[in-house]
Design a protein around this nucleic acid. Sequence first.
DNA 1: AGTACCACCTGACGGC
DNA 2: TGCCGTCAGGTGGTAC
Length: 260
Amino acid sequence: MPELPDVEVYKRYLAAHALHRQIARIKASSPRQLAGTSARSLGRVLARKRFESTHRHGKHLFVRLSGGPWLMLHFGMTGSLSYYRNGRGPPRFTRLRIDFPRDAHLAYVDPRRFGRIALADSPSGFVEAHRLGPDALALDVAGLRERVAGKRGAIKALLMDQRAIAGIGNIYADEILFQARIHPLRSAGRLDQRQIGRLFRNLRRVLRKAISARADAARMPRSFLLPRRARSARCPRCNARIRTIAVGGRTTYYCAKCQR
DNA sequence: AGTACCACCTGACGGC
DNA sequence: TGCCGTCAGGTGGTAC
């Protein structure tokens, strides 16, 4: 589930449980998920350090290590964090375990192993190296206008392009377009100023609402499409049957009546 | 520039 | 119960 709102929730979760405590040791048990590092060197870098602060850019979470680089966590399609203690034992599919004193642990869990773990000198350096666009919540309306201009492809594809805007994936692209009443296949460059304005406002509104709902579909407003991603669902606005199409190979839910 | 498809992984679920 | 196909909220590469 990890798009911007989910990663923001993980960021707060990590900050609440794992800051300012000395790391005793780690166990990295999924070598292929370590990008540009190894279990051994990751262990050497983390041991006896503390997590000092957190930063999020799009779907990437950065954790600053005392007197050292940053730990970068990306969650793929199935990644999450789990803090546990007192002899509980790590959750199933734990790929990285960070041990703190007194039997307290933070687990990076990722059944499908699409997530990535790396070390970075700085978040901005990492963002540059990976050519990520601005974080979706840092974007202003002029920035959105710029990004949309001259693009002939589908607006949904642009929203999901991490090099254009960082943080929006399949689920939230659908939600934003639904709330903005724009058809997902609409050519980005053909949006008029009114539509760009609606897109911008709803992009911010949807992401902020999702964060305050703790990225939990059950806590989303009733007007959201998100909890209705199922066959034979109905539009919360007009009650028409929700349709699905493929955009960029991803299943897209939308209301053909509300979104033009 | 934009799109289609494959690969990487693993689990859940429906049909037979 | 078991096997099989399909699908899943991401990303990177390749080929048209």
